[in-house]
Design a protein around this nucleic acid. Structure first.
Lengths: 295, 295
DNA sequence: ATCCATACGATAGTATTTCTAATGCTTCGT
DNA sequence: ACGAAGCATTAGAAATACTATCGTATGGAT
């Protein structure tokens, strides 16, 4: 615990690089800096130690005796440190790519497409974390979050990769002939809504409708809602993107629609993402789409 | 040689300190920085590695598994580096204090006083390098140079520790009754002068005297001049400080004098001098004096 | 011998990194 | 519930490192 008063570590590294390379110019190359920078670092180290480490000999350089000794120790030390860091990196590289998103998005949009990615990159393990919680993106934890925002709250510099109408849908059985513009009448139908959220009420409020009777809302875990809607258990408010096929086949009907109201975009943790994460991101972006009512 | 792409070394050190101390606050103490600085460094490292190293546990922290492993390696690595640096430092500390100065100054001024310093600091080895060459002050080489400047060339911010008249002196035998103002007549006496210099001629030039006959100059190594002057072999141009006693005793007489013309000052190499060097400098400054003609 | 290519040295200005100060948040003990 | 202890976050200041440029010394080629 007395290595706390070491000379500036960068100058030690610079000197070690010089010792290894045999010349300032080459060392500078390896360190991705200019020769002048290395020269200064070594000078600073010599000053700090009060000992000459490098001597000019003709056109090149040579280590002094002290310099040679120090270089040996530095090389050994940095090598050990490097091994430690390398181990961490290997472990990190093998770690699965962890993605969080809402349950609905996972089941209705991502899962149907994910097979393609896994076929293309069998070496990458994906771990999906479908939850409506907003999870922190920390190092060693979740790598990517796919977040929803409606267009009222879109942040100017965030690039959405899925823009979609938001719709209220239900089976034709349940909806009857309500497909028209009478939004208020939707308050009479049973709603399905994710536990702990309040989408239905918000939706009415947004449209300036005050239901005459209390809404009839069935709360359930997010992953159960979509099947329940298809079964005709109720109606819900969701992204058109999740029901394109069902709508086309007439299995569900659209009771209301807000054009390009929903934005899904990608958030990554701080810093440069790992290679695997980048690969997944790239793939994800190729799947970007805009979903709105067919002509 | 692949430890060149290590993460920022300072953040590695910060993390290692945290691992060793068990808390950010204490680590910060040891590193002589604020807790915030350490926190930032560790965060940066986690970001860089893409791995969580430290976890908050209640009010304190705990290392993750990765963190613990890395900490072990870092400690080992830094320890080796530290040992290397420590060896250099020990060697440097034991190195003698090396001082360069002119031969005349060494023999006439410093040597008579040096015993006192060595009695006071027997643990410090002094190495004097009396030469009229201007030696470079590099780390690992000369620590201190005592340089002469005449008052025409004194640098404004350099602090002289010895200011002295410059005089032309010789034995009474040799000089006869020439003590007066007739400087031109000094050209008839034999001069003693350091090899490779041109003091005598310069002196006449400075005083605007053009000798009628060529000067009679005897070149010799610097250390031999003063004894030769005392022996009556010739006259020379030198600092009054070197002959205060001889003048007082009448063993030599002053043939000409320039009041406070000579300045000796100290020059040290770049950077903070070593402890031993500082000790010597301090002592040297206590010997500072101004030497001029007694009233 | 002179010129040229190579490599290090010095320095001023700029860019980057690191640190501090101030403040906020969470947890735990009383 | 309150206050103390300890980590997190931020903007701005300070310190450090780097680049660009020029200068100097050396050794080989014409």
């Amino acid at each position: 615990m007395d290595w706390l008063n070491l000379p500036p570590l960068n100058s030690l590294r610079a000197f070690a690089a010089v010792a290894g390379a045999g010349s300032y110019a080459e060392a500078a190359d390896h360190l991705n800096v200019t020769q002048a920078a290395v020269s200064q670092q070594v000078k600073a180290l010599e000053r700090r130690l009060g000992v000459a480490l490098v001597a000019r000999v003709g056109r090149g350089i040579e280590l002094t005796e002290s310099g040679a000794h120090l270089a040996r120790d530095l090389e050994a030390g940095f090598d050990i440190i490097n091994r430690g860091v390398a181990r961490i990196n290997e472990a990190a590289a093998a770690r699965p790519v962890q993605v969080t998103m809402s349950p609905a998005f996972a089941v209705e949009w991502l899962m149907p497409k994910i097979g393609e990615f896994q076929r293309a990159h069998p070496e990458i393990t994906l771990m999906l974390n479908p939850t409506s919680h907003v999870v922190d993106l920390r190092p060693g934890g979740i790598d990517i979050a796919i977040r929803y925002r409606d267009r009222r709250r879109v942040e100017p510099d965030s690039e959405a990769f899925l823009k979609t109408d938001m719709v209220v849908i239900g089976t034709p059985d349940l909806a009857g002939e309500r497909t028209g513009a009478d939004l208020a009448s939707l308050a009479e139908l049973p709603w399905l809504q994710e536990l702990g959220t309040n989408e239905a009420a918000d939706w009415f409020t947004y449209h300036g409708i005050v239901p005459k009777k209390p809404l009839q809302i069935n709360h359930m875990p997010g992953n159960l809602i979509m099947p329940a809607v298809r079964r005709g258990d109720g109606i819900t408010y969701t992204a058109r993107a999740f029901f394109v096929d069902d709508l086309a086949a007439g299995r569900v009907v659209e009771l209301a629609s807000e054009t390009l109201f929903g934005f899904y975009y990608i958030e990554t943790g701080p810093g440069e993402p790992r290679t695997d994460v980048m690969t997944f991101l790239k793939w994800l972006r190729t799947k970007a789409e805009v979903v709105t009512k067919p002509a």
